[in-house]
Design a protein around this nucleic acid. Sequence first.
RNA 1: GCCCGGGUGGUGUAGCCCGGCUAGCAUAGAGGCCUGUCGAGCCUCAGACCCGGGUUCAAAUCCCGGCCCGGGCGCCA
Length: 438
Amino acid sequence: MLSQGLESRGEEDIDMAEKVRIGGWVSEIRSIGKIKFVVLRTPQGRVQLTLKKSEVPDELLSQIDDLTQESVIEATGFMSEKKIAKAVDMEVIPKSIVVHSTSERKLPLDPNWKTPALFPTRMNYRPLDLRRPEVQAIFKIETSFLRGVIDWLDSHGFLMVFTPAIIGAASESGAEVFEVKYFDKKAYLRQDPQLHRQLTIIGGFTKIYDVGPNWRAEPSHTARHISEFRSIAVEMAFISDEGDVMRVEEELLVAGLRRVLEERSKELELLNVDLDVPKTPFPELRFPEIYNILEDLGKEIPFGEDYDTESEKLLWRYAREKYGTDFLFINRFPFKTKPFYVMKAEDLWARSVDLLYKGEELSSGGQREHRYEVLVSQIREKGLDLNSLEWFTKFFRYGAPPHGGFAMGLERTVYKMLNLQNIREAALFPRDVERVLP
RNA sequence: GCCCGGGUGGUGUAGCCCGGCUAGCAUAGAGGCCUGUCGAGCCUCAGACCCGGGUUCAAAUCCCGGCCCGGGCGCCA
């Protein structure tokens, strides 16, 4: 039989005449002479068990003597008639206590956060770190955001699909991928579900999305990169141009943010985050005008070249001042800096769109090239090997609609939304160059 | 891949520049006192210089190497 969740069990029992059964992690134990307090972290909030020597059996009191912080216990008792404790959500007079698990006394980090632990310590002992309400808030918000996005996509006719995570050919330019042994062959973990989304479109599904993991073997040492991340990847057919893709992207973001505001006001408050639903459409800046804007901001980028990280920050502040938003589309990147599959707008510029959020790249996308001959000539232009991409390009010989899409990094979005110091905060068990455990 | 910074009790820090008494503080831990809330308080105890080599009468402190970690750039989500 499946064990019942603590949350539902507790709520049921409350209905039955103030008798409660409540389980949780011991957050504090205080002994004041002939009265003892145990504060639990529970799904219902912070719950104080109050044990007065005159009111509870001696066995219970001696049980408390051996209790340690972070042990897991379940108590049965009654709601206190008057709640004297101010700093907790509920006060309970226990009748019995079951100790499920005793924690060691010296903790590698303190979930009560009296002495804040450093980042590596937190990640080394992530399960204890996750017990902190502020940390849990991040993942509750993440879930609500994703749910809002998915509901929007579903209600707008997008089909949820799952494209493969193991791919037989390193996509594009042989960028940094993780190699895996695949029977007697080599295979790779996908860095993006991009190419298979396109093939799914060629398969006749005209509106799809794929939420799943991606891996990058880039040795990035920054606060905004992890080696494994989730993306919300959308692809749609019969678009008139990349603008259609941008409209979907901003609406889906708004739907996600709106859901967060609806469901997670407590968590936002806990994290001290002011969240607004941005106005649509988001402002859009295009190359080559970007060069002039940057020059006015004191940044010179050679014509035809990509901009850098500093430019992203400059453009954010520029857009904030001019349009009052943290979201900004950058369109028409130089074709030479983009992959072979993007559609050109003119010879030099691509229908290739990034979405910046508070100065960082949330997503990349745009319109893809669907014409076989053009695709092949772009592969030649990039100096790539036609044969190695044939597994992908050959399907374009049998009917491909105009299409486009984007991939939005989930952890990145949450990291920027909540003004976190590090993207790793938005991953339960982050993977990076230094870390694959726990 | 390139560059910068850092490793001191369980946790978090001071000390390092300018080498020298028993390595300071906070918090957590152990023990004691207290019948209400508070990050409760007070008293006692225990607990640390990443590893290896060098310089020196003397190294947490200076030098070299290693290991581990954080960040910036590049690349990207």
